[in-house]
Design a protein around this nucleic acid. Sequence first.
DNA 1: TTTCTAATTTGTAATGATTATTTTATAATT
DNA 2: AATTATAAAATAATCATTACAAATTAGAAA
Lengths: 141, 141
Amino acid sequence: MDSIVSLVQKCKKAGLKLTPQRLAIFKTLDGNKTHPTVDSIYQSLKKDFPTMSLTTVYNTLETLYEMGEIIKLDIDPDKAHFDPDNKKHHHFKCSSCGKIVDVLINFSEILENVELQNSNFTITDFNINFRGICDFCSKKN
Amino acid sequence: MDSIVSLVQKCKKAGLKLTPQRLAIFKTLDGNKTHPTVDSIYQSLKKDFPTMSLTTVYNTLETLYEMGEIIKLDIDPDKAHFDPDNKKHHHFKCSSCGKIVDVLINFSEILENVELQNSNFTITDFNINFRGICDFCSKKN
DNA sequence: TTTCTAATTTGTAATGATTATTTTATAATT
DNA sequence: AATTATAAAATAATCATTACAAATTAGAAA
Ligand SMILES: [Mn+2]
Ligand SMILES: [Mn+2]
Ligand SMILES: [Zn+2]
Ligand SMILES: [Zn+2]
């Protein structure tokens, strides 16, 4: 996701209103490494915004997603997790505590391999989901 | 997934009853390359089994999943797709028609790379989800 | 500053996949 | 054939997500 100031510019250009709710969601996402869900963002905001609606969080995240500002993860089949980091990277989910962390290794050569050997479809994107036990959980046992 | 005969043996050993419904679901899965959903299996079976229950399909697939006989895909956030092929492979989903096809290239070296550079978690499994346009859809346009 | 209006927020209802529960039926054993 | 533990079926409950309609408001224009 862009910086808040750039994002504000983009919104103005796109005719999107800069509501307090939107700005609050932008700020919550900015630099957020926790891969939050709709509900976790909603919960964290309704302290400061008692009238905040879950629908607004859904709508704002969908808008940011369509703008390409944030990523939607498919690593958790139960609910969507969002990521303000839209640079190419992958994820690891701990089977024990459910935490999702970044895997920053570059696998761009994967695309080339697949494109070479599968000329029958055009790949536009890919993501890798890793699973296992995180550091914290393995130390507990 | 094992062959039907081996699967029948495993069930007997595990004390699982061989009901007509289960056998029908086994047969539907056997060699199935379509990555079916619970509902698609249910729809295809209720012709021959008018009393077939959606719950039975859910239960049987869950049982097979826990036995390690089938895989659950996370490539479609809307619903679970199942795969009787439990050999390591990956998937491609067409953004246009939604079809899910196999990507059979071996990426085992990925695990090694990640393990080397991320000693802070233990990876037990990973999968790659590719997206793009399939052969059929690209020829249509 | 005030007015206007399209965009947004909010509250609520609807949807759809999945899970839970309860009752009825049956596979497998004796 | 009788018994019993397991499974099937029907139904209800849950939960994330989407749809909708009414109330609000950011931003532009007067
Ligand atoms: Mn991330
Ligand atoms: Mn497959
Ligand atoms: Zn953990
Ligand atoms: Zn296609």
